[in-house]
Every structure is written in structure tokens, then in C-alpha cells.
Amino acid sequence: MKKPTLYFLSGTMCTPLLWEFVCAELTQFDCIFIDTTSATSFAEIDTLLDATLEENTFVVAFSMGAYAAMHFAVSNPDRIQKMMVIAASATSLSAKELQLRKSTIDFLEKHNYKGISTTRALQFLHPKNHQNNVLIQVIKNMDSDLGKEVLIRQLKATSQRVDLTQKLQKIQTRIHIIASKEDALVNIEDVQHTQKQLPKATSTFLKNCGHMIPLEMPDLVRSAIINFF
């Protein structure tokens, strides 16, 4: 009997390593990782997803990848049967975040890039994991594998985000949201606002976890996948 397929979409500067701990014991599914690092816009990601996803498919998406999945679902309301949205909202980026990204791009274009610093990597993790060298190294390895050009391209491609919350009401996709109340990168109020626009959506809100939920709480994510899909 053919296993059900799960398509995984990752965040900025993330590779399949993001899902390594989740998928290691997720043998009842065929896990397919979609690489969006070559895309220069969400429209290009839409085209890639259109060519890759099956009909009535299952999608697990994290951070920027989760926004991309929601962006695709708005234009293709019947294409994704079920979608798990992790560490993401459907809102646009704040002016502060946009300015930070612009400054980062300007700096990268003028200087050598030596890879993500430990200080920056720790911003993605909950303080309880700041001594977890395994998780820190995974973040550094993903960044190293992709490199400076991908970082610049992804920052440029994914910064201009429209607010999708109202449009999400029209889709048929069943959605489960997983988010952390202590995520330093994604405002939990934005996630809750997204949830309120989706009366049929279910959700899991975490404590003692940072932004990198698939790395920090892989057992919880795996259990949620099994229960939801």
C-alpha cells in the first residue's frame, strides 16, 4: 500500500536538516522536501508548488515556507487538503523587520559573509536551548550549505508580503497552526489574528520554545503530524 505523501516547506536559510529529527521516525509517510531557494518572489514559489504538489495534497510548512504555502492556497483554494502552519502568520512584515532586512541586504552586498554567528543563531532558539550545541550547529550547517547568495536572494524575494488573513477565509484547506508564545521572530498576536480569521483551524500554542519548533520540539511536531494527517 502506497504511503501518504507529506510535502515539507522550510523557512529562510533552511534545508531538509530542519526536519531531520521530525522525519527520522515518521516512517508511515513519504516525506518530500521542496526546495524554494532558487525563487526570487512568492509568485515563483507559487509556480514551483503548482508544478510539484499533487491534488488534495498534505503540506507541512515552517516560517517563510508556511507563508508561501498560505500564499499558494489563496490562489489555489482547492489544491491543498490539509496544511500544518508552523511558526508563521499570514500578516505582512512590520516596518521594523523590513528595515532590518534592508540593512542586512545592504551589508551583505558590500562585505564578505562568514556565516551566521552564534549570537544570531541563538535568537532563533528559546533560552533553555542556548547551551544546546547540536541545535546551534544544525542552524549553522544549514546556513553554510546555502551561503551568501541564497541569503540575499531569499531576503529580497520574501520581504514584500501582503496580508493574507482576509483571503484565507475563502480557502477549503484544513489548517492546524503550531506556534510558540516565546518566539522572538514571529509575534504570537499576529499568529492568533491569523487563527481568528480561520474559524475551522485548530491550533497548538507552545511555551518554553523559540522559533525553531521542528528542531526544539520534534516529538511534538511529529505527534501533531500523525494526529492531523
Rank of each mutant, 00 (worst) to 15 (best):
N76M: 01
V191F: 04
Q169F: 05
F228I: 06
L98A: 04
L18E: 07
Q160W: 07
L48Y: 07
N208A: 13
G11K: 01
I139H: 03
S223W: 02
D219R: 09
T47I: 11
M217D: 04
D145K: 14
D143A: 12
L17Y: 10
A201Q: 12
L135Q: 02
Q154A: 01
F205D: 02
P214R: 04
A121S: 15
Y113W: 14
R174A: 13
M13Y: 02
K3H: 05
T5F: 06
N76P: 08
N227M: 10
S63G: 01
I225S: 00
T202S: 15
F228W: 09
A184E: 14
K128S: 15
V162D: 10
D143G: 07
N132D: 15
V59E: 03
D35A: 08
A69R: 00
L164F: 02
L155K: 08
N187K: 11
V191D: 06
V150L: 05
K167M: 09
N133L: 13
Y7R: 05
Y113D: 03
F107R: 12
M64G: 03
L146G: 11
N129T: 09
I139Y: 01
N56K: 13
Q123S: 15
T36Q: 11
I105G: 03
T27P: 00
G11L: 03
D46I: 00
Q81N: 14
S38F: 12
A224T: 13
T104P: 00
K140Q: 15
D145C: 08
P218Q: 07
M64D: 11
T37R: 12
I136N: 04
L49F: 07
H130A: 11
G210I: 01
T165W: 00
L17N: 10
M83F: 04
F72G: 00
I152E: 10
R101I: 14
G210R: 00
T47L: 11
Q137L: 06
V85L: 10
E216H: 09
T15H: 09
K3V: 02
K200G: 11
L164Y: 00
F72Q: 00
D30W: 01
I45T: 13
Q192P: 00
G11T: 05
A157F: 02
Q160S: 13
L146A: 10
L215W: 05
L98Q: 14
